[in-house]
Design a protein around this nucleic acid. Structure first.
Lengths: 95, 95
DNA sequence: TCCGAATGTCAGCGTTCGCTTACATTATCA
DNA sequence: TGATAATGTAAGCGAACGCTGACATTCGGA
């Protein structure tokens, strides 16, 4: 699943956890975090540490994939990004 | 790319940034983080905030995909996880 | 219905984040 | 070669993290 927001990820985690019949305490212990933390993450806490998140995903068998694919619809061959546009945009800031 | 560690992600980010001909300062400003932070992340800082990481990936056009697929090769229909095994494993801890 | 488990909420605390500023070190190019 | 940009390192600081522990609240089965 493509996760746009922290809430998305939280939902994925919770869903997966339940599907695996694990309660928060068990998973938290297994992963090595506090139950409190797990609760907040499942609720979509956006500022959680990447490392801990990763550990949870790992424990749940969820792979984290960083797909370097620009928004382009489909037929993007390989490395065909509109550099200039991006750079220009970058220079303008984002109003 | 499948990112296992924070260093992996850092590499992806740096690579992408360079490919886009952006320097750290520019990207940092665009994303709304400090250059210092970007440096640490590119070096694989594992405890960075998920939200900021996501913003960077976003700015670079990198999608974050959380794939809930256990190691199974390919033909996993829908919900066919070996629950018992996983639960049992969970109860044993991980020595 | 009642009882226990699972989940959510609160407060306090030490640690670490991410920021700023300034200064090295290392490319990169005229 | 020298100069300028890009990158790395360091110290100090406020803010937020994640943890512990205790206490509500909700859920599920006997």
């Amino acid at each position: 699943m493509l996760t746009r927001t922290a809430a998305d990820l939280g939902a994925v985690i919770r869903d997966r956890r339940k599907r695996l019949k694990l309660d928060q305490s068990t998973l938290a212990k297994k992963v090595g975090v506090s139950r409190q933390w797990l609760i907040e993450v499942e609720h979509g806490h956006p500022r959680a540490e990447l490392g801990l998140i990763r550990r949870v995903l790992d424990a749940l068998g969820i792979k984290l994939d960083a797909d370097s694919n620009p928004s382009a619809g489909r037929g993007v061959p390989k490395t065909a990004v509109d550099l200039d546009a991006i750079v220009a945009k970058a220079k303008k800031g984002k109003p």
